[in-house]
Simulated assay, not measured.
Amino acid sequence: MERKNISTGSHWEKIVGYSRAVKIGNHVHISGTTAINDQGRIVGLGDPYTQTKQTSKNIESALLMAGGTLENVVRTRIYAVNSAHWKSIGQAHCEYFAKIRPVTSMVEVRRLIAPEILIEIEADAVIDDD
């Protein structure tokens, strides 16, 4: 089965040794994704809703590079530093995934890689063989 590693060119990918996404066959696995914009800056400081929206855009971008769309997402995993933010995180997630309705989980974690990052999302997708 063919493997395709998908990179966004982030310097972290080489430092840590990972790919933004890996496509094997028609399955796409997207690494933990945060609210980093194209300039490498964290978007939505102090705002979990805005960070969730940017993170969802970043997931969508990785899927497009893999030949898919958000409609192909079957699972998301949300890591939040404060579960009290669940409503705003959920609202932003819903804006991207309401029609798709992937399985999901939201887990509170003590912290993420940088103190300004409030959420991180992983995603799995299945792209049709058409």
Results as ranks from 00 to 15, higher is better:
G90N: 06
I89N: 01
E120C: 11
S19A: 11
V22P: 07
S61K: 09
N5H: 13
Q54D: 01
A35V: 06
V81H: 03
T69D: 02
E60P: 05
E108N: 08
I36T: 08
T8F: 13
Q39R: 15
V22Y: 08
S7Q: 07
D130V: 12
W12L: 13
E120L: 05
I36W: 06
R75E: 11
Q54P: 03
I15N: 12
L112T: 04
G25L: 06
M106H: 03
L63I: 04
I30R: 04
A66R: 00
V22F: 07
S88K: 09
T76R: 02
Q51D: 04
T55Y: 02
A66I: 05
V28E: 02
D38V: 14
A66W: 01
R3D: 13
M1V: 12
R3H: 15
T8L: 14
R111C: 06
S19V: 05
A98F: 15
D124Q: 13
V43D: 00
Q91N: 13
K4M: 08
V43I: 05
D47L: 09
A21R: 01
L64P: 00
A98S: 14
K4T: 11
D47C: 08
Y96M: 02
G25M: 10
V43P: 03
K57L: 10
P102G: 04
L63S: 02
S61A: 13
E13F: 00
Y79K: 09
Q39D: 12
N37D: 14
A84Q: 12
I113L: 15
C94G: 15
Y18V: 14
T50G: 03
I30L: 04
V16H: 06
K99N: 10
A84S: 12
V73Q: 01
A92L: 00
G32D: 07
S7D: 13
V16F: 09
S88I: 03
S83I: 15
G9H: 05
I78S: 03
G68K: 01
N58E: 05
V22R: 08
I59E: 00
R3W: 14
M65I: 10
D130T: 13
Y96F: 15
E122G: 10
S7G: 08
K4I: 14
K53Y: 12
I89R: 04
Y49P: 00
M106W: 01
W12D: 11
P102A: 03
L64T: 07
A62D: 07
A35M: 01
T52E: 06
E108Y: 03
G17V: 12
V16P: 00
L64V: 13
I15D: 14
A62P: 00
E116F: 01
L64F: 08
V43N: 02
I15Y: 14
A114Q: 14
M1C: 11
W12H: 09
Y49M: 02
M1S: 14
I36M: 08
Y79L: 11
G68I: 03
Y79A: 08
V126R: 05
I121L: 09
V28I: 10
H85L: 03
T104I: 11
M65S: 14
V107H: 10
I59T: 00
W12G: 08
N5C: 15
R20W: 06
M1I: 13
